[in-house]
């Protein structure tokens, strides 16, 4: 299992990367940590003509703190978040999420931006960042735009990114001191894909009570008003929500997603 031949470029700046992408007419693939793309290349499932390695772009490794939020460059690794090398403005949620992605050797290379762009419904950041009302910072030939993460993933393995755009980073609002969260991920083995992900966030100072159902078949399902989960678990309404998230037809999936939400809520109130 060796990849088909591909060309390789490692641009030094965003403009260079965008230019390469624009000139590739869809046959190029951006690679950051390569932990998702690598297996697909090896299995010959992905056969791009050009791989654009964006790890050489300084801006993608930057962290900046501004206006009640923090911006993480796309190439920040899961391990850096897990280890607290990056300031955690989510009262431990992001550290917990990062620490449970795949395996350490993968977390050392895998990046938050790469994971978002890969848009795997079962991926952790894809599921949890919408809970935090994060935003995606996108660079393209026409400059920069910002999209709510909630709308960044449009479906499984599909995002709002145009073929010549690059995700520069994610903006994460800071939680207030009174904020509480509960997160639950069910997988058959540590490091395996999640069968269900649920997370609940209550931040009264910012008037937030949100929940998310992740590891769906498509984009994660955000519950804007999650009081029926956070305050007295309303099992019937949760069931309806699970159905609405598109994971309720199969009894097994219905059960595990329902349970995941229940346990996330329990942890919230622990």
């Amino acid at each position: 299992m060796k990849p088909v031949a591909f060309d390789y470029e490692r641009p030094r700046d965003l403009a260079g990367a965008v230019k390469l992408l624009a000139g590739s007419s869809g046959a190029a693939k951006v690679m950051a940590g390569g932990q998702s793309l690598g297996p697909m290349l090896n299995l010959r499932l992905a056969q791009p003509q050009l791989v654009i390695d964006v790890r050489g772009i300084g801006e993608l490794h930057a962290v900046s703190d501004a206006n009640g939020s923090i911006v993480l460059g796309s190439c920040i690794t899961h391990a850096a978040i897990e280890d607290g090398v990056i300031q955690d403005v989510t009262r431990g949620l992001m550290r917990e999420v990062a620490a449970n992605i795949a395996y350490r050797a993968v977390r050392n290379r895998g990046t938050i931006g790469g994971s978002m762009c890969h848009a795997d419904p079962a991926a952790d950041w894809v599921s949890v960042l919408p809970l935090l009302s994060a935003a995606a910072l996108i660079e393209g030939p026409r400059g920069r735009r910002e999209v709510d993460v909630e709308h960044f993933v449009t479906g499984a393995f599909s995002t709002v990114l145009e073929e010549n755009e690059i995700l520069v980073g994610v903006r994460i609002p800071k939680l207030s001191a009174a904020a509480r969260w509960g997160h639950y991920k069910f997988c058959r083995k540590p490091g395996e894909f999640a069968e269900a992900i649920a997370a609940v966030l209550v931040d009264p100072d910012r008037n937030v009570c949100r929940a998310v159902i992740g590891a769906t078949h498509s984009a994660p399902h955000v519950i804007e008003d999650a009081h029926f989960i956070a305050e007295g678990f309303d099992s019937e309404r949760v069931l309806a929500t699970v159905m609405a998230a598109g994971v309720g037809d199969d009894p097994y999936e219905r059960q595990i997603h329902h349970t995941a939400l229940k346990r996330a809520a329990l942890r919230l109130n622990a």
């Binding site: 297996p39 299995l43 058959r188 083995k189 540590p190 490091g191 395996e192 894909f193």
Partner: peptide
């Protein structure tokens, strides 16, 4: 067709 489909017990199992 991969070890992500065919689950082998790890140390945690």
């Amino acid at each position: 067709s991969t070890l992500a489909d065919y689950l082998l017990p790890g140390a945690t199992e």
